[in-house]
Design a protein around this nucleic acid. Structure first.
Lengths: 211, 211, 211, 211
DNA sequence: GCCTAACCGAGACGGTACGTCCGGTCTTTTT
DNA sequence: AAAAAGACCGGACGTACCGTCTCGGTTAGGC
C-alpha cells in the first residue's frame, strides 16, 4: 500500500543510480499509525472514525499518513491487513482426543474475547466491505479464515481418528462456525457466547459428521 | 419510529377528549420518503446518500423528515424496517416431497435475485449495523429472518414426514443457510450461487438431519 | 392593507340582503396582531422577529395574518403605520414664552422616553427601510415627522413674537433635531439625552435663528 | 475581530517562546473575504447575502470564515470596519478661502457618489445596527465620522480666519451635515443632493456661526 | 561539516453534508 | 367560512470532517 520505493530495485550491481535525495519516510510510523487506526476503528466504527482522531492517537500529522495511504478507506484496508494474524496458532491447536472437546477448547473464552475484538474491528469497517472488494478479502483473510483453517485441521484429525464420517465435506463444514459467529456478531449483534457455540456444535456440526 | 398518537389512549371513560387541533402529519409522506430513501440507499450506499437527495427524490422538505426521524441513521433504520417483508411467502412455500427439493425450490433464482437486491440495500447500510443495535435488528428481521422462518417450516414438515431425524435442532439448523448466505454476500462479497447452496445443503444440512 | 369588507355597506335598513355565508373576519384581531408585531419588533428587531413569535404573542394562527398581509415586511409596514401618531399633540404644545423653553418642554423626559420606544421600533425595522421605500415613508411619517411639525409650530410662534430672525429657514431648522435624534439613536446607538439636546439647541438651533 | 496573536506578548525576558506549530492562517484571505462580503452586501443587502455566496465570491470554504468570524453578523461588522476610510482625505481638504466654498467643495459630486456607495452598504446592514452596538459604532466610524472630522477642520480654519463666531460649538456643528445626510439617505431614502446640502448650509450652518 | 531535499507534527484551507430554523402556503378541527 | 394550530416545501445557517497545502523545524543523504 505504501508507495513503491524507487531504491528497492537497486539491489545488485547498479552503479551511480542517483537516489532521490532527502530524508526517508520513517518506517517505524507505519505500524504505529495502523495500530492507532485499528483502535479508533474498534471504538467508534468506520463512520465515527475521523482522521484527526487517528492522527492524535498516533501523535502524527495528517500529512504523514496521507503521504502513505491515499484515503481513509485504504488506510483502514491496510490496517486490517496488518492485524497480526496467527492468533489462532495452527501449530499449537488443542488436542483433547475428541472433536467436540477440540472445538470447545479452540473457542475457549480467551480466544473468543480476542476474536470479539477482531469482530469489533470488522464491524467498524463493515461499511467498507460493501464498497471495496479488496478490503472485504483482507478482512476475511485476517479475521475469519484463520479460524476456518483451525477447524479444518481439527476436522481432518478427527477423520483420521475415524471419529467422524470419512465422506464429510470438511471444507464446507469448517466454514460453518466462523461464518455464523461473524454473522451473529456483525449483523445480529448478539453475543457469540458458549451456549450458542454448543448449540451449533451439537445441533449442526456433530450431527453432520457422525458416521 | 414516528411518534405515537397521544390521542390514541382514550381507553377509559373520558368523553369529549378534544384532539389537538392543527394539520395532521401527512401519513402518505412516510412511505414515499422511506421508498425514496431505499432507492437512494441502494444506488449510492449509505455514505453517498445525502438527505438533500432523499428530499429531492421524495419532493419533501428536509424539515418534513427531520420532524419524523431524528437523524439519517434512524431514517434508514425505519426504511429498512419498512421494506416489504413477505417476499418469501410462508403461505405458499414449495412442497416437492423432499427436504432437498423444497430448499432448492425456496432459493430459486428469482428469490435469490430478489434477495440480492435486499442484500444490496443491507450492504449499503452495513456501516450502521455496527453502530446501532436497533438497525441491525431491523435489518435482520426484514431480510434474513423470513428465510429462516421458511426453513423452519420446511424442516418441520420433513420431520413430520419422518424424512429427517426427530431429534434434529430445527431452530439452529434453520439459521444456517440464511446466516451463511448473508455472511457470504455482505462480508465475503462472494456470490451466493447455486453451487454454494448445494454444497451447504449436501455437505452440512442433510448430513446433520439424516435419521 | 386588509381586504375590503363587502359587508361594510349593509349599514342601515338593509333587509334580506344575503350576506356571503360564513364567519366574518374578526376585525378586532387587526390591532391585536399589529400590537403584537410591534412588541416583538421592538424587542428582538426585524431579523429576530419570527412570524411564529408574533402569532404566539397575538394568540393567532399564522394563517390569520397571512390572510391579511402578504408578507412579514408588509405586516411590519402596516404595524408602523398603525402606531398611534399624535403623541406629540400639536393642539397642546408647550408655551413657555421662549423658544428655548418651548423646545426643552417639548422634549420633556416623558416624551423622550415615549420617543425612544418608537425609535426602538424603528431601529428594529431599520433593515426594511432600505428595501422598501413605502415603509421608510410610513416610518418617517409616524415617528419623526410629528416632532418636526411641532418644531415648525414652535419656531413659527417664536418668529411671530419677533424672538428669532424673520428670515430663518424654519422648514429646514425644524428637521434638525428630529433627524439628529433619530440618527443618534438608530445609527450611533447613543442615548438622546438632555445634555445632547441642550448642545443642539444652544450650539446650533438658537445661534442659527438669533436675529 | 480575528483573534490576537498569542505570541505577540513576548515582551518580558522570556526567551525561546515556542510559537504554536502548524500552518498559519492565511492573512491574505481576510481582506479578500471582507471585500467579497462588502460586494455581496452592497448588491443584495444583509438579508439577501448568503454565506455560500460570499464563500463562492471569495473562493473560500465556509469553514475558513467561520474560523475567523463567529457569525454572519460579525463578519459584516468586520467588513464594514475594514472599509477603506480615508476617502475624505484630511490631508488634502479643499481650501477655497470661505467656509461655504470649502464645504461645498468637500461634498463635491464625486465624494457624494463615493459616500452614497458607502451608504448603500450601510443601508444593506441597517438591520444589524439595531442588534449590535459594536456594528453601529464601526459603521459610524467608517462612514460618517470621517466627514464629521473634515467638517471640524474646515470650521476650525474658518474660526482661525475670524470668518465665524469664535464661540461657535464646532464639535456639535460638525456633526450636523453628516448626521442629516445619513438620516436622509438611510431612513428617509431621499437623495442627499446639492439642493438639500445648500439648504442645510445656508439655512442652518452659516446662520449658526455668523459672528 | 555543510547543503539540500524530503520528512515530521500541527493545523488552516476548499468543499460538501448534516441537522436546525424560519418564511410563506396548505390542511385539519373547531367556532 | 374564518379562526387556531401546526405540518408542509424550500433554502440559509453554522458545525464537522475529508483530503490538500503550508508552516516551522528536523533528519538524512551527497558534496
Amino acid at each position: 500500500m505504501t508507495q513503491d520505493d524507487p531504491t528497492a530495485g537497486d539491489g545488485g550491481g547498479g552503479r551511480t543510480v542517483h537516489r532521490r535525495p532527502g530524508r526517508k519516510p520513517d518506517a517505524s510510523r507505519d505500524p504505529e499509525i495502523l495500530d492507532a487506526a485499528l483502535q479508533v476503528l474498534a471504538e467508534v466504527g468506520y463512520a465515527g472514525m475521523t482522521m484527526a482522531a487517528v492522527a492524535a492517537r498516533a501523535k502524527a500529522g495528517k500529512g504523514t499518513f496521507y503521504r502513505r495511504w491515499p484515503s481513509k478507506a485504504k488506510l483502514v484496508l491496510d490496517a486490517v491487513g496488518h492485524m497480526k494474524r496467527s492468533q489462532v496458532g495452527l501449530d499449537r491447536l488443542p488436542d483433547t482426543g475428541s472433536l467436540r472437546g477440540d472445538i470447545l477448547a479452540l473457542f475457549k473464552p480467551a480466544s473468543v474475547e480476542e476474536g470479539e475484538h477482531q469482530l469489533a474491528i470488522m464491524a467498524g469497517l463493515a461499511s467498507m466491505l460493501s464498497q471495496d472488494r479488496g478490503l472485504a478479502e483482507a478482512a476475511n483473510d485476517a479475521i475469519v479464515e484463520p479460524w476456518a483453517a483451525a477447524n479444518r485441521v481439527l476436522l481432518s484429525r478427527a477423520m483420521s481418528r475415524g471419529e467422524i464420517d470419512a465422506t464429510a465435506d470438511v471444507e464446507t463444514l469448517a466454514q460453518i462456525i466462523p461464518s455464523i459467529a461473524a454473522y451473529r456478531a456483525l449483523i445480529q449483534r448478539k453475543p457469540f457466547d458458549r451456549d450458542f457455540l454448543v448449540s451449533i456444535i451439537d445441533g449442526v456440526l456433530l450431527p453432520a459428521v457422525r458416521p
